[in-house]
């Protein structure tokens, strides 16, 4: 997708693949035929630049044809470079300016409570993203209002755009910060499906406070030369790199149909 588009953010998309896979495959209730079903669980990708991973999940479950994935970022397509809730079914929030998704998630969670609906709202944030002040304003609000139907994931891949998070503006100790803001916190390996599944089950059981899952991840996970190489934060692989990457990932059976 990103290779075909010629631009995009492979690193931050690859670090959240398992989280999305676990959520869509095993946890979330949704109906691609009725994307506005009021009782659906919500997934808000606050780190909007990771959207290719989300598009893949949405296409897989039939929100739109898989072939459309190859129109990413093109004028003749609707798969925008960052999420657009008005164009693509299954996209809950238009994001891409970092720091805004958790607040929107609170709106969904609050609305669910007011309407006595049982859906859960999941929000995925980047570790660089949580440097935004709005995230902490949202963190205060969610715990003050005991939003236990809200779960945040922090994709802690250690890097942001210019450099390592630790070098630019450290967010550590991140678990303690959320805890002191009144959230229930769990720290996991964000690439272990088992740990993700277990953490989601844990979050479903938390009462009286919002929950956050600090997912330790690897930026560019799954492609050796992208892992931990922040050069791939915001650039597409070349033809050669693409071939390599697809080999390493074990090319998808439907890949031929795509190409």
């Amino acid at each position: 997708m990103i290779h075909r588009a010629g631009s995009g953010h492979p690193g931050g998309a690859l670090s959240l693949v398992e989280i999305l896979a676990e959520l869509y495959a095993r946890r979330m209730r949704f109906d691609p035929e009725h994307p506005d079903w009021p009782d659906r669980d919500r997934l808000i990708l606050s780190k909007g630049h990771g959207v290719p991973a989300l598009y893949a999940a949405l296409a897989w479950y039939g929100y739109f044809p898989k072939e459309e994935l190859l129109t990413l970022r093109r004028t003749d397509g609707r798969l925008e470079g960052h999420p657009d809730r008005c164009r693509v079914p299954g996209i809950e929030a238009s994001t891409g300016s970092l720091g805004q998704g958790l607040s929107i998630g609170i709106g969904h969670a609050l609305s669910g409570r007011l309407d006595q609906r049982t859906y859960r709202t999941f929000v995925i944030l980047g570790d660089g993203e949580i440097q935004e002040g709005q995230v902490w304003e949202a963190a205060l609000f969610a715990s003050a209002h005991r939003l236990d139907n809200l779960t945040a994931f922090i994709d802690c891949n250690g890097f942001q755009l210019d450099d390592a998070v630790e070098k630019i503006l450290s967010i550590e100790p991140v678990a303690e910060k959320w805890e002191s803001f009144g959230w229930a916190v769990r720290e996991i390996d964000g690439h272990s499906l088992g740990e993700i599944e277990e953490a989601i089950r844990w979050a479903d059981g938390v009462r009286g406070k919002p929950s956050v899952i600090v997912a330790r991840t690897v930026k560019g996970k799954g492609v050796s030369f992208m892992e931990g190489n922040n050069d791939f934060h915001g650039r597409a692989p070349t033809d050669e790199e693409f071939e390599h990457a697809m080999k390493e990932l074990g090319a998808h059976p439907e890949r031929e149909a795509f190409l």
């Binding site: 970092l98 720091g99 660089g128 993203e129 440097q131 935004e132 002040g133 942001q160 755009l161 210019d162 450099d163 630019i168 503006l169």
Partner: peptide
């Protein structure tokens, strides 16, 4: 704001690291 490579303030950062601050995504 974590876009020094894109805005090109990184050129200044390299020459005058003491007078450059990456404020992060904030």
């Amino acid at each position: 704001g974590d876009l020094a490579k894109s805005t090109k303030s990184a050129v200044f950062a390299e020459r005058f690291p003491d007078r450059f601050f990456n404020a992060g995504i904030a």
